[in-house]
């Protein structure tokens, strides 16, 4: 996955400006796909692609800021770089309020553009790596039985085995066995690792409104 090639998507309604951006990005040796409108882009782009979006702000139809919002609504993590024609502060402020975004003012140097693009791509790569890791943890988590999940919730909340045994009315030995199974199923070699995974998992569940598999009082030790 690390050697996946990024693509820079360019959305710009002025043909000359669009072609000139394609030239500038392709001169840096990066693959480019360009679109004349936000609508065209939304209809055609590969949502799993690594890369970033470079878009004009003022366009007929959906504007750059509206496009950014649409991506966010769709849950697409593609980073957005908006290029505005003139000091368009209110638009910039609006865009920054709704999400991670970079702003460039026309005309920009290739160094600026390139620095912004490579930073965006690096962020995206990082983001996708994390997304993949979370997906894996989630996958492992689904392998746990209901009883194992209850034990895990108490383990990561910092309860001692004894306390867990008492709360769940099971033998201490059983708790220890469960603990070993959980660490194995979750590919964790320590409790610390399991805690880290649970944090990612929680985030994951929040973001995707996942099944509330942890009991409501999880972690609330007596």
């Amino acid at each position: 996955m690390t050697d996946e090639q990024p693509i820079v998507f360019i959305v710009e309604d002025d043909e000359a400006v669009r072609d000139s951006l394609v030239a500038m990005v392709s001169a840096a040796g990066v693959t480019v796909e360009s679109f004349a409108s936000a609508e065209e882009f939304l209809a055609a782009f590969d949502r799993d692609q690594l890369g970033c979006l470079v878009s004009d702000v003022r366009m007929e139809g959906l504007t750059g800021t509206q496009l950014q919002k649409r991506l966010l609504d769709e849950g697409v993590s593609l980073p957005v770089i908006l290029i505005s024609g003139y000091a368009d502060v209110p638009t910039a402020v609006d865009a920054m309020k709704i999400g991670a975004i970079s702003f460039l003012e026309k005309p920009c140097t290739r160094q600026e553009l390139w620095a912004t693009i490579s930073k965006a791509i690096a962020t995206h790569r990082e983001q996708r790596k994390q997304d993949a890791a979370v997906a894996e943890i989630r996958e492992w988590f689904t392998q746990l039985t209901q009883s194992e999940r209850e034990v895990m919730a108490r383990l990561v909340a910092g309860q001692a085995n004894k306390v867990i045994a008492a709360e769940l009315e099971m033998g201490l030995r059983t708790v220890e066995l469960r603990r070993a199974t959980i660490l194995k199923k979750m590919n964790a070699d320590s409790l610390a690792e399991l805690v880290r995974q649970s944090i990612l998992l929680d985030q994951f569940k929040q973001e995707h409104q996942g099944i509330s598999s942890l009991p409501p009082d999880a972690g609330a030790g007596r």
Binding site: D19, S20, A23, Y86, K106, P107
Partner: peptide
Amino acid sequence: GQPLYAISNFAQAGVQV
């Protein structure tokens, strides 16, 4: 601004290459 911006971009692309 649009054509001037395009000019600047094409020129910079050339320099880069």
